[in-house]
Design a protein around this nucleic acid. Structure first.
Length: 270
DNA sequence: CACACAACCTGCGAGC
DNA sequence: TGCTCGCAGGTTGTGT
């Protein structure tokens, strides 16, 4: 499910149920995710959760001696459930809590990850290479303009590249570019300052709006049937190839870039 | 260095 | 009913 908004909605949903709770056990049923779940993750057992944070699409669950990182990949979901609930297919990990609940990760495709960071230093590996958070002031028009100079890559590929900016996945990349009137195939280096301004603004707005809409379903997060059921987005282009543009009725086109589908309006996006 | 593309894995819907 | 194919919200690693 996860692009940045879905991960943030997930964080907001689970935080009230797990923050301040003691981890009483960590049950690993399937260790082989994107990377094997490290044995040292059991260091977190008997410790108290002191923070529930997010960096990029990683959830960060902090205890005194380190942090558990969780990435949901393409198909991961996480739920707070009663610890006695019988696990189903692809329920790979439980973080069992002192309050009788458990944080349960389900991930059919296993592109997700559960990692352990000892101490409080930033990881050399996954977190160190990440660019700015899109919703902070570190991500702004001048930054994007300077960063994109002399880049021949298509702008869509550029904004989906984690070292440039994190958290912009395929859906919101398509939507942001439509709202900005920029073709996904345009070379990043050809963006004007004005276009960088418009694009950064739209990326921020699209992500913020999605978080806000996801938030409306938070109260259902721990219901028995469980699934967060993300608020249905009103999407302008994603998944609408061949259908009329909602602005000008022109038939939306689809191209593949870096093996991902890009949909755009040939009239509205130049 | 910059960029394109395959790979990781399972499930689902379309088409036959 | 059941098979095969293509595609899916992400990221890393390899090759040119």
């Amino acid at each position: 499910m996860p692009e940045l908004p879905e991960v943030e909605v997930c964080r907001l949903g689970i935080k009230p149920h797990i923050d301040g709770e003691r981890i009483t056990d960590i049950v690993v049923r399937q260790r082989q995710l994107r990377w094997p779940i490290p044995e040292q993750i059991s260091d977190a057992i008997d410790e108290v959760i002191v923070a529930v944070e997010r960096r990029s699409k990683y959830l960060i669950i902090k205890v005194a001696s380190g942090s558990i990182l969780i990435h949901l990949g393409m198909s991961g979901t996480i739920r707070v459930i009663d610890k006695a609930l019988v696990p189903v297919k692809h329920d790979h990990v439980d973080i069992v809590l002192g309050n009788g609940k458990a944080l349960r990760l389900n991930d059919p495709r296993r592109f997700g990850a559960v990692l352990w960071l000892a101490g409080d230093q930033d990881e050399q590996g996954v977190l160190a290479k990440l660019g700015p958070e899109p919703l902070t002031d570190d991500f702004h028009a001048d930054y994007l303009y300077k960063k994109s100079r002399n880049k021949a890559v298509p702008v869509k590929t550029f904004i989906m590249n984690n070292p440039v900016v994190v958290g912009v996945g395929n859906i919101y990349a398509n939507e942001s570019l439509f709202l900005s009137g920029i073709r996904p195939t345009k070379k990043a280096g050809k963006l004007t300052k004005k276009q960088c301004q418009v694009l950064t603004n739209n990326i921020k707005e699209v992500l913020a709006a999605a978080i806000k809409q996801g938030g409306t379903t938070l109260k259902d997060f721990t219901q028995a049937d469980g699934r967060p059921g993300y608020f249905k987005q009103s999407l302008y282009v994603y998944g609408r190839a061949g259908e009329p543009c909602l602005t000008c009725q022109t038939t939306l086109k689809e191209v593949r870039q870096s093996n991902r589908s890009s949909v755009y309006c040939p009239q509205c996006q130049k």
